[in-house]
Design a protein around this nucleic acid. Structure first.
Lengths: 338, 338
DNA sequence: CACGGCAGAGCAAACGTTTGCACAAGGAGT
DNA sequence: ACTCCTTGTGCAAACGTTTGCTCTGCCGTG
């Protein structure tokens, strides 16, 4: 009973042509104020909504930005999405969400769907499994703009936005040193992640500057599962001189590690202290949270990613200047008041 | 240089008609195996991907389910999204994400965009501000299926999926009573939310069953902001006989309330205990978490919402039987080991 | 009076698919 | 030899917009 009402319908009722209606709705100056007004009124009266699909087909755009990330439930990522949605919605773009669950195969599948759907842009944080990146190149070959964020694989020529974790690790380590800690351990992330290397470099740079020794026994890598974190932390504690402070890959790792310490009877922030990355809001509620955390500004990362996509989509398609944008946000060391 | 390659292109190269190509790609039995094979091969070779936009226009579908919720960063909601994405992706649907930030006006805006975009289905958890629901009815009038989840407003004739919070509150309260607590307070949510009423009824029912008095002084409503929670909790503590246990609207409220108690020198789980809703994973890391929490199975809620949408979209459009589905999941009281 | 220009509006093609119907050729049944 | 299916394919319209071009008056200028 409810016929979808189109531009043609409006035209029919007003005894004018569809093209005139279209132009009137776009406030094209070539249409007389009188007709324009009439069209707008009729459109309102009939509750006309333009068909986005038809428009997309005509314009060769979909109005969709895709967001591909490992796990939406991780606070960091949902905060990124928060920023993305905010800005994208303001510019009439739809945000399509996809989770890789940190699985390479799933990531590949997702990107191939995106290629088919011809989205206008993709924001991607790669799965920790991913070691090979043809699937990304594939999108680029199809002229779909890609912004890599946070987890940025090497050697892909495209836009990126991240937070300078080398600096974050450096500052965190320096801060620990300035508070008198001498045996600072690093509970780092898995190897494939560039973010792990960044943290490592910052950590080492700070230690050297502070004339503290860099000891292999104090540096562990975890695969980001709670089990492995527990294992590695236990190892740290079993060394002859156990660390008096730990720089953890992120808050989740820190929390898991702290559990281990507690179980071994250590008092957090007294016997051993933690600093980590991410600044989870919930740690504020804890009795013994990490002393400090490196804020990565995920909301801002999300906004920036969208800004980049908007700038390449809205402006001319090519400009013959590829000019990939690479934004590196400044981290911020947030010290908790104890 | 990279021409988008279409069905016509394949047709041209094979000297057949576009319609034949289209049918061949759909494995239509009317096409001979030979041509079908040739088409598939050519498609693969040219890396052909069908234009989803064109197809959608033709079919009058978009292949998009929209997800509208207050805040993605709230663990409960991101867990729902997790379930939604999982199932939707498996059925080749795109999940479009929108946040209302608990603002009615924003919610209205979003739903009107969705009406225009002609999404194939909407999953909605209303903003806590929303008191009036014409915007939802609007979608329904446009024949867009709507599934309301978690925050379900009254008097809207459409699909719903929620978790029985009356029962959850009842069991939580009974459990507290069984542990010997006698002055059990309720830190409830805001009035407009049906969920608040459900909790209230369950709470009262349990108290009556246990022959405990229902005291207005022990029942407070918060607007879900930390400030207000702090205010209401302080009031609870200032009553002559302060409560020995608190049933909180959700974990966030519980955590904020616990902060207040701590500041007043009360020992959590000794002087005063908490039970709440949501079962945030992070509370597991806390030294003093709520004693128990009512798990609402958000992941399952998400899956169920998508199942409903799939059932109404995939099957015939109308069947002349409106038959709205209403699913009520069983909550689960999760008791923490201390 | 002729001509150029301009304002306002319409025609029709295009975007890439899908699909009802028509069509051709061949084989089988009468 | 005639019709009548069957099988495989093509024609063309449709989905709802957008947009380059054309067309018709009309006004002002020379």
């Amino acid at each position: 009973m409810k016929e979808t009402i189109t531009i043609k319908e409006i035209a029919r009722r007003l005894h004018i042509s569809p093209s005139t209606v279209s132009r009137a709705l776009q406030n094209n100056p070539r249409i007389s104020p009188a007709t324009r007004e009439a069209v707008h009124q009729m459109a309102g009266q009939l509750k006309y909504f333009p068909s986005t699909t038809a428009r997309n087909l005509r314009r060769g755009k979909t109005g969709v930005f895709a967001m591909v990330l490992p796990e939406i439930r991780e606070n960091f990522f949902s905060e990124v999405v928060n920023g993305v949605e905010e800005l994208a919605f303001g510019h009439q773009y739809t945000v399509a969400l996809y989770q890789s669950h940190d699985l390479f195969e799933r990531e590949r599948q997702i990107l191939s769907v995106l290629a088919a759907n011809q989205v206008d842009g993709v924001m991607l944080s790669v799965a920790k499994e991913s070691q090979q990146f043809d699937h990304i190149q594939n999108l680029l070959d199809r002229r779909i703009p890609v912004v890599l964020f946070d987890r940025i694989p090497p050697r892909i020529e495209t836009h990126q936005v991240g937070c300078d974790m080398e600096k974050g690790a450096y500052e965190a380590t320096k801060w620990l040193a300035s508070r008198g800690f001498r045996r600072i351990a690093l509970l780092n992330g898995p190897h494939p992640l560039v973010a792990s290397e960044d943290r490592y470099r910052g950590y080492v740079r700070a230690l050297l500057e502070e004339n503290l020794p860099v000891e292999n026994a104090l540096i562990k890598r975890v695969d980001l599962t709670p089990d492995d974190t527990a294992r590695q932390m236990a190892q740290l504690l079993s060394t002859p001189h156990r660390p008096d402070a730990v720089l953890a890959f992120n808050d989740y790792v820190a929390l898991d590690a702290m559990q281990v310490c507690r179980k071994q009877g250590l008092q957090i922030n007294a016997d051993i202290s933690f600093v980590s990355f991410a600044n989870l809001p919930l740690t504020a509620y804890m009795d013994h949270s990490p002393l400090a955390s490196v804020e990565q500004h995920p909301y801002q990362i999300g906004r920036t990613a969208v800004e980049i996509l908007l700038s390449v989509t809205e402006s001319g398609p090519d400009e013959s200047a590829p000019a990939f944008q690479r934004v590196m946000l400044e981290p911020e060391l947030v010290v908790r008041v104890e």
